[in-house]
């Protein structure tokens, strides 16, 4: 292990990590938005739209992100839709994540017992109050563990971005290994930086899960 090499590579990796984070958080933010909307459409069985949403979920859940990115980045320009790499990365992550988040949120909504809605109604709450104060909080606390798992999964999936020539951590590592053959140092830095991104998320996720467990009703 050569510490001089490591310290000279640090700024390069740091920059690469910022790129991963920038696209990652944008993608995840939109994934949550898409997931939320799609889950509501699915849950309330809005005619036609619900069907389309179902196809979307199945399609994106059953194909790998790498292939989706290749399609978005290399195939869409052929039919006249220009794409740039960063946008493609965020879009791909948002679409993939949206499908996963939608299933998570929907199963959360479905887990809220029907008696909760009925009780709320009979207590005189109107429809929007019932949804906002009775259904959403309970659905949320049920979907948190799967939600955290999704966020970690999506952050890990960002490692395929190098395939569409985004200069993320993977790209940096492969590039430096190819240039100078300092394989060990490059790999150690790679592991270190991914741990730097993901361990805090994992720890925070665990805490969130423990917190909302108290909010559950029943036993």
């Amino acid at each position: 292990m050569n510490w001089e090499v490591i310290s000279s590579y640090l700024p390069l990796y740091w920059k690469a990590m910022l790129l991963t984070l920038r696209i990652g958080w944008l993608g995840i933010l939109f994934a949550i938005l898409i997931g939320f909307l799609v889950a509501i459409v699915r849950f309330y069985k809005v005619p036609v739209v619900s069907r389309i949403a179902g196809v979307y979920i199945e399609f994106f859940r059953n194909t790998p992100l790498l292939v989706q990115l290749f399609f978005l980045y290399f195939a869409l320009p052929k039919i006249g839709i220009p794409m740039n790499a960063e946008f493609t990365g965020a879009l791909g992550l948002a679409l993939l994540g949206g499908a996963y988040m939608a299933e998570t949120f929907r199963s959360g909504l479905e887990s809220v017992a029907k008696i909760q809605t009925e009780s709320a109604m009979s207590l005189g709450l109107n429809k929007s109050q019932t949804v906002l104060h009775i259904i959403f909080p309970q659905a949320f606390s049920v979907s948190v563990p799967a939600f955290v798992a999704n966020v970690i999964f999506l952050l890990k999936e960002t490692s395929v971005f190098s395939a569409i020539s985004l200069m993320d951590l993977m790209f940096r590592a492969k590039d430096l290994i190819g240039l100078y053959y300092k394989t060990t140092e490059c790999l150690v830095l790679l592991v270190f930086f991914y741990a730097l991104i993901l361990i805090p998320v994992s720890v925070l996720g665990d805490r969130l899960e423990r917190r909302v467990r108290h909010a559950e009703f029943g036993d």
Partner: peptide
């Protein structure tokens, strides 16, 4: 925590 890509590398 580790992406499968990193493990592959």
């Amino acid at each position: 925590v580790m992406p499968q890509m990193v493990l592959l590398f």
